[in-house]
Amino acid sequence: MRADRLLQLLYLLRRHGRLTAARLAELLEVSERTVLRDMEALSAAGVPVYTEQGRGGGCVLLEGWETDVSGLSPDEAQALFAWTAQGAAADLGLGPQLATALTKLSATVPQPALERADALAAVVVVDRRRWFAASEEVPLLPRLREAAVARRRVRLRYGAPSDPEPSRRTVDPYGLVENAGRWYLLAAHRGVVKSFRASRILEATVLDEPARVPPDLDLAAEWARVRAAFEDRQQGVALVVAVRPEVLGRFRLVASSQVATGTAAEAAGEHDGWPLLRLTVRAQEAGVALVLGFGGDVRLVEPVALPDAVRRRARAALALHGGSAEM
Rank of each mutant, 00 (worst) to 15 (best):
A21R: 14
R252I: 12
R15T: 14
V125D: 00
L105R: 13
L9D: 08
E76D: 15
W65T: 04
V126N: 09
L306R: 04
A242N: 08
S135D: 14
E231V: 15
E32G: 06
E209A: 12
R313Y: 00
R244N: 12
V298H: 03
D232I: 12
D38T: 03
E270N: 10
S199A: 09
L207T: 13
R143V: 11
S257E: 09
L114Q: 12
A133N: 05
V259N: 08
V126I: 15
G273E: 01
R227G: 00
A160M: 04
F230W: 11
P210D: 11
T20S: 15
L306K: 04
R145L: 15
S324E: 07
G64D: 10
L141Y: 08
R168S: 11
T84D: 10
V301Q: 01
K104G: 12
T280E: 09
G159Q: 14
F81P: 07
P74D: 03
Q86V: 12
R143G: 13
G95E: 13
V241G: 00
A220Q: 07
L279P: 10
V47Q: 00
H16S: 08
E231C: 06
L306P: 10
E209G: 08
G93I: 11
Y11C: 04
G175C: 11
R116W: 03
A89L: 13
T261G: 02
G293L: 06
A117W: 00
A309G: 00
L279K: 08
V138P: 05
S31V: 04
W65A: 08
N179G: 01
A198V: 12
Q86S: 13
A117L: 06
V177S: 01
E203P: 07
A22W: 00
A289P: 09
A79K: 09
R225S: 06
G46F: 14
R14W: 00
